[in-house]
């Protein structure tokens, strides 16, 4: 067992950890911080993303024993004093469905905006490339992140646009309303992937 001292969400901990024990095991199993999720165990899905000294890292790959002096922030640490603007934006933009990828996604977004407050849409996509989501298709999450960034990289999606009503118009011989379909605007500058 190895003694290691580090902080989690501002609280100091000194623990004796196993040599192969992972940060995710410490968070979920010992500290009761279950917001960080395990989706694959091999650092591919990003559901376990936390901040270690401000960097987004997969907690399933971080040996707890390596954390001496480190400062770890999990999703629970974002909402100690009301919601983080990113969290509010995820709610406002309907960026959540089953929610399992959400904590990791929010943490990756937090790390991105802390380092790069005005990312382009491509930079946002690159930052969350290591966060897999099977439900949402990522669009509304990207809109949420862009709205906090305030870059206007993505126009806010008009939720009500694109609804076409049929019957009354058809019967009256009036063609469908020609509102344009609501589409994701092309990225500015057409950045390479």
């Amino acid at each position: 067992m190895i003694e290691v001292s580090f902080s989690v969400n501002g609280a100091a901990h000194t623990l004796r950890v196993g040599p192969g024990e992972r940060l995710i095991d410490v968070l979920r199993g010992r500290l009761g911080l279950t917001g960080t999720k395990e989706g694959c165990g091999i650092g591919v899905c990003g559901a376990c993303t936390v901040l270690v000294d401000g960097r987004a890292e997969n907690a399933c790959l971080v040996p707890a024993a390596s954390l001496e002096g480190a400062s770890v922030v999990t999703v629970e640490g974002l909402s100690t004093d009301g919601l983080d603007p990113l969290q509010q934006a995820f709610l406002d933009h309907h960026a959540i469905q089953c929610g399992f990828c959400t904590p990791g996604l929010v943490m990756s977004a937090r790390a991105l905006l802390d380092e790069n407050p005005e990312p382009t849409e491509e930079e946002i996509r690159t930052a969350i490339r290591g966060n897999l989501c099977r439900c949402t298709g990522y669009e509304q999450a990207i809109a949420a992140i862009a709205s906090v960034a305030g870059t206007g990289a993505r126009a806010l999606l008009d939720e009500q646009a694109g609804l076409i009503r049929s019957s009354a118009r058809l019967e009256a011989g009036v063609p469908f309303a020609r509102t344009p379909p609501t589409s994701t605007p092309a990225p500015e500058g057409g950045d390479a992937r």
Binding site: G43, E57, N58, S108, G130, N131
Partner: peptide, 9 residues
């Protein structure tokens, strides 16, 4: 190489 999380370590 990998994603942001990978490259950070």
């Amino acid at each position: 190489v990998g994603g942001v999380q990978t490259r950070n370590r």
